[in-house]
Amino acid sequence: MLLLLYLSGGLFLGWSLGANDASNIFGTAVSTRMVKFRTAAIIAGIFLILGAVISGAGTSHTLGKLGSITMIAGAFMVALSAALTVFWMTKLSLPVSTSQAIVGAIIGWNLFAGMAIDYHTLSRIALTWVISPILAAVFAWLLYLMVNQLYRVVNIHLFRLDAYTRIGLILVGAFGAYSLGANNIANVVGVFVPVVPFTDISLLGITFNSAQQLFLLGSMAVAVGIFTYSKRVMLMVGKGVVKLNPQTALIVVLAQSLVLFLFASRGLEAWLSAQGLPTIPLVPLSSSQVVIGAVLGIGYAHGGKGIQYKALLKVASGWVSTPIIAAIITFLALFFLQNVFGQQVY
């Protein structure tokens, strides 16, 4: 019971991730009524859990390198502080991401515990945040050109295109949910990996280690967030600044999913390493910022008209402000937990 109480910080973060970020995958599909919310939520929930349990370890490992939290009370406060940062900044309509909040929170723990900050890992993480929206823009731009070329060659009846688009939105949505789970589960429960007292469980011949059990728990919280709160966020996507049609949304979601997958796949990392090629750092990203990059890519493919460069500034400001705010909140919260409640946090 006490363990669950400690985990609640991360689970709350997971709930808010599900409530907000599922709209990056199924927002347009649901708001344009191409896919029913129920269908979207079930697919997103299942594939997000699969992605988290099967491929969530890579980004968790990177966060572990940034700061391996030694006490469960400390992990609780780090996760809760990140969640509070996200909650507070969202309320103030400031650009925020759970990935940047958790990294800031870990740094806050490092500072409080007097641990040395691994600047090499931190700089790799920061660089990835900058690169990921750019990469998404490039992917979206290329996919857009390819799809447009395909349109020119193949004549698809309007009604049949509707059917293909629906199927595409569901398949790409499933891939997107898998990638989001793989990439972002570290934000939710990654800090608990070194401290959680789970033992390995064997089920149907498959062994689930303690990290995977933790990822399962965290991703279930994300799935609850999707089912309970993401519908209104998804419907807002349709009324938002960037209104995409279902075909363009398909490209944006695919570009986003590819980027999230690239920065979470251990298999790809191993393959690149085996080929003697430079590996891609496994870093939790902000799916919202990746989506902004993909939408900008489509904007460029359209000739660059109507691109709001203010959106880029907002993204860039989030890279700096979120970790700093999260670090300060975490530092203060750890001080409070240690000195008022007498808990050992490191």
């Binding site: 009846h157 009604f159 049949r160 509707d162 059917a163 629906r166 199927i167």
Partner: peptide, 12 residues
């Protein structure tokens, strides 16, 4: 698939 049957009917 049911979806394609529906759209085929509509096309006709």
């Amino acid at each position: 698939m049911a979806l394609f049957k529906k759209t085929k009917k509509l096309e006709l």
